[in-house]
């Protein structure tokens, strides 16, 4: 049977306590992970992937579970997000499509945003990884190379396969972080950093506290489209969110974001702005969809081939934008 390596679990009741525990551990140079819903972290632990000796649980910190139209706490469960009357309908669609009911009950918004990147050569047991002479996202001290794109020992190309980020980015979300050094905020798309290992700007001991959405969020309409083999369980092989504001003669603002294609989600501002400036109905959508397809670079490390995923980005973009020309 797969068994997790043993770890010490900390269960602070306030954010301050949590950050203090983190500081103490850091001072002693002890490694630790935050755990929210655990639906991502624990399977990885069972696979002995970068398991740490200490784990700090955020589940007892009630201040992280606040939810309204413009504020989403990091510890709000995906299920609560999907069922809340405050949640933007496109966000509801994305949240409701994640994994399965059971996982949505445990999984959290913060956990989903910080989801570890995934790769066929990484998400495997220890025994399996030994058979490929390890991978550098979890090299177990072997200084292994990347198995997807060999002979480059720097970049990890594991894929970011979470659903909420593209929608939140299109809605103009701001992410708020906290650590013992204080709090900071940034637009969500600036949170991610292109590397399959580090993934985002979080510093050691820092965590996501909540997401805020702008006041005009309900004036945005749109859609989220997701590609996967099965309608349950599966991570997105590609996901496209499109959100827009309508004027009298067509859309006045448009944002497109993608997920499941690279090591971080992508916000495609330039392509979307081009489309708005030259708006011509369905022709523009075709051009836009093609432009989005060209802008992503999936690699061979998930269920579908990169070429298929790329092709599907075009179809998904067209479908996500279908509401733009339906009146």
């Amino acid at each position: 049977m797969m068994r997790m390596p043993p770890f010490k679990l900390h269960t602070p009741k306030t954010l301050n306590d949590a950050l203090n525990i983190a500081r103490e551990l850091s001072n002693e140079e002890i490694e630790f992970d935050w755990i929210a819903g655990g639906t991502d972290l624990l399977p990885n632990y069972k696979w002995h992937l970068n398991a740490k000796p200490h784990v700090i649980s955020l589940s007892g910190i009630s201040e992280l579970s606040k939810l309204n139209s413009n504020h989403i706490g990091a510890m709000v469960s995906l299920h609560d997000l999907a069922k809340s009357k405050y949640t933007h309908p496109v966000l509801v669609k994305a949240a409701d499509s994640i994994a399965s009911t059971l996982i949505r009950r445990s999984g959290t918004v913060g956990g989903n945003i910080c989801l570890d990147t995934r790769c066929y050569w990484f998400n495997q047991t220890e025994q399996w990884r030994e058979s490929i002479d390890w991978c550098h996202k979890c090299d177990c001290g072997t200084e292994a190379d990347c198995r997807v794109i060999p002979n480059q020992n720097t970049l990890c190309v594991a894929t970011y396969q979470a659903d909420l980020a593209p929608v939140l980015m299109c809605l103009g979300a701001t992410i708020h972080l906290a650590s013992v050094n204080g709090i900071r905020s940034m637009p969500l798309h600036n949170f991610f950093e292109l590397d399959g290992m580090t993934r985002n700007v979080l510093q050691h001991g820092e965590l996501v506290t909540h997401i805020t959405l702008p006041e005009d969020v309900n004036e945005w309409k749109g859609d989220y489209q997701k590609l996967r083999q099965r309608e349950s369980w599966d991570f997105p092989e590609a996901g496209v969110a499109a959100l827009w504001r309508m004027g009298t003669k067509g859309p006045t603002q448009l944002r497109i974001a993608t997920t499941g294609l690279e090591s971080i989600p992508g916000l495609h501002l330039e392509e979307a702005n081009n489309a708005i400036s030259k708006w011509n109905g369905s022709n523009t959508i075709d051009t836009l969809a093609d432009a989005i397809r060209k802008s992503v670079k999936p690699v061979q490390n998930t269920w579908y081939s990169p070429s298929y995923r790329k092709k599907m980005v075009k179809v998904l973009t067209k479908r996500a934008c279908a509401g733009l020309i339906e009146r």
Partner: peptide, 16 residues
């Protein structure tokens, strides 16, 4: 290498 020796990546149809 067998790439999907687990029930997430070995795609048994779900109820859907």
């Amino acid at each position: 290498h067998l790439m999907n020796p687990d029930l997430l990546d070995y795609k048994i149809p779900s109820v859907h």
